[in-house]
Design a protein around this nucleic acid. Structure first.
Lengths: 237, 237
DNA sequence: CGGTCCCTTGAAAACGTTCAAATATAGTGG
DNA sequence: CCACTATATTTGAACGTTTTCAAGGGACCG
């Protein structure tokens, strides 16, 4: 994946961060990126990475573990905005404000690479490639946020959720046909805007159809085609 | 609003574009922005500004009129992604791709200021303020997209829609207590993920409560408090 | 004046939620 | 090692909101 030996020698974990933020930089640029990076964590399960209203000054790449972002609505119910796997960048939606607009919490043991945003933005003015990468990260998130906004059935949502997870694992070179999710049913429900009971029932139905195999947090995908067909309505790809 | 007399003398409409894209630039910078701007339109009602799959190379500020972006789902049903009033920037979600991921169509007579994105990004590397403004525009859209993703009732969605519209008019110095919307009930329904019949019924109920006054596309807000209360669940502010 | 598209209204049906309760799992301390 | 508790998950049944289907009215445009 990161076949840039020099960068790896330079600092293996920070090279990984550089990969998270963008590719194609020379050694000097990597060195400049490196000084912006701060390794933070580990965060324990349930520990907050940041809270709504905290001063925003950095974005972070997940190095290992899983996190979720969420807000609490007026009736105190949790709305999960997204899940963040290793390689994902968290905190982008805060850029337009001076404070984080949501909470972020670790779902298991989480390690981060934190980047000062003012500094990285300043660096970006001298590195067009980095600027473009940041633009793309931001723009991608706009599309991703719109994804679940549609008017979809519980089955379509769940299928899309599973396929998206699988794709994200695959894009990181991990096993994508069988994985262990870090989130509870309730987290999934809050993300998909369904009741936890509905999540449970849909998973049951998928298993009865022999499309998946579920055992607690372990999920195996048996009939990707069927799931893809359902998910297509949501994912449009 | 635009109290920069020089800029206005320089080119009134382009000064307006500069205002759309960002403030606080000196005369030289405005001149540089100016050469990037291309006035396009008018587009007639129903005419497309761009279509899904078109090559992406520019973003555009709406100068007058109203547009919507939408995608067509697998069953051929339209999903409205957003409405764009004068001053709004359209096309930001395309930055991560080389092609537009959605369609944009004029709802009435529309004029645009179009900016070459590669050029404006290049300029941004020399103008930190512009870069930051672009980052903020993008980040704002992430938040806005997440807005309607929640699990809200038809009443809450409609109230939020009306209040948001009112606020956007107000922020442009326009009448915000009574306005004429350019979109059909079906457009609103496709945006709020409701059936057109539901939109009709909710508006009826609001009018029966004397919260609003509706006559075709004309909408007057009578009890902003009641609407705000409902909308709060969605807008969180 | 006729046609088309938009909007409204009513009744029935569907889907997901809520409520209630049973079951299972992991962590804790005896 | 086992009981015990808190939390997570599953399941069933009733309920409610929104959708769907069907039809009627109304505005605008030629």
């Amino acid at each position: 994946m990161a076949d840039d030996g020099d960068a790896l020698n330079f600092c293996s974990t920070c090279a990984f961060s550089a990969v998270c933020i963008g590719n194609g930089y020379d050694k000097d640029h990597l060195r400049e990126l490196h000084v912006l990076v701060e390794h933070v964590g580990p965060f324990a399960e349930g520990e907050h990475l940041f809270r709504e209203g905290d001063d925003f000054n950095s974005i972070a790449a997940v190095r290992s573990g899983t996190a979720k972002t969420y807000v609490t609505d007026t009736q105190g119910r949790e709305q999960v905005l997204g899940f963040f796997l290793p390689g994902d960048v968290i905190g982008l939606s805060a850029i337009s404000e001076s404070r984080y607009p949501c909470n972020a919490v670790a779902l298991d043991r989480v390690l981060l690479c934190r980047f000062s945003f003012p500094n990285i933005a300043a660096l970006a003015t001298r590195m067009p490639g980095l600027q473009q990468h940041l633009f793309r990260l931001l723009s991608q998130d706009i599309g991703r946020a719109a994804l679940l906004a549609g008017n979809f059935s519980a089955d379509e949502r769940m299928a899309a959720f599973l396929m998206q997870l699988s794709r994200r694992y695959a894009s990181r070179g991990l096993e994508d046909g069988h994985f262990r999710v870090a989130m509870t049913r309730t987290d999934i429900a809050n993300y998909l805007r369904l009741a936890p009971e509905t999540v449970s029932r849909v998973l049951r139905r998928f298993q009865d159809n022999e499309w998946i195999r579920v055992e607690r947090r372990e999920i195996g995908l048996l009939k990707r085609d069927s799931l893809e067909t359902l998910a297509r309505a949501v994912l449009r790809a």
